[in-house]
Amino acid sequence: MEDLIVAFLRSGTPLVYVTLAGVIAQRAGIWHLGLEGMMITGACATILGIVLAQSVVVGLLAGAVFCCLLALLFWFVVEVLKANQIIAGLGLTGLGLGGTALALTAIFGSEGAVSASFGLPRLGPAFGAFGGLSVLVAAMPFVVFACWLLLCRTRFGLRLAACGEHPFAARATGVNPGTMRLVALLLGGPLCALGGAELAAGSLQIFSVNMTAGRGFMSFAAVIFGAGHPLGATLASFFFALVGALGIRAQLSYGDRIPSSLLLALPYVATVAGLWLSARMRGGNAASSRELGQQ
């Protein structure tokens, strides 16, 4: 049982950080399909920072800086050049996946993966079975709470929501939706970097090409499943992570009878099911597809 909870926290935490970035963007009126690209950039930058500078702090800072640069680029393309958000987000994901593969080849030759000699600090033996988890896992509840406070209990959060829901209402009170979206995306940058860092350096200490494997898109689905609310989206991410952890457990128990690829696909199946469910709960998928189409 403890193993399951550890596996669950380990796979859920990266999703939660990235999902929070998606929630902030969604509140400001941006459907952030670039989450995957930002997450893998954060993962890559963290490991490279650790390998090249022998410092976790440098690694995390590098991740945050690169993710913020990507966020800035995304904002520029969407707000200034007025490009379609969906296409721009997918482009950003492509840039992240391709860019990290390129960086790996450029720095280490043609390797598909690079491993670091150490990763993020662990909680330590005082936490018993949970001692192997990184500090980012322990920090996660506080970050979620802080996001909830910021989005749902401050005037900043109301302004952000107004920009997403009714930009004219924001403009009419002197709030510039474009600026607010920049702030939202820049807030999301470090969160994506933390998600990526936890994925690559939390327990593994390795970065490999395409290692996010669609987790950014899963986070995006969690934003929709959680109706754009920080707590709801966090629960949705944990739901996807739980299905993943159960899948791994099932693989250990029934691996000889059920093809493992089928069990590995479980979180993705859960994502699709979750999206279908959230569409049903909100009165048919016309509403959600209209939202996507309009933005």
Binding site: R155, L158, R159, A161, A162, E165, H166, F168, A169, R171, A172, T173
Partner: peptide, 14 residues
């Protein structure tokens, strides 16, 4: 110019 999902209090706070 009022966001439909806001409560009246939230609009005023905003």
């Amino acid at each position: 110019a009022l966001p439909p999902s806001f409560t009246v209090a939230e609009v005023l706070q905003f």
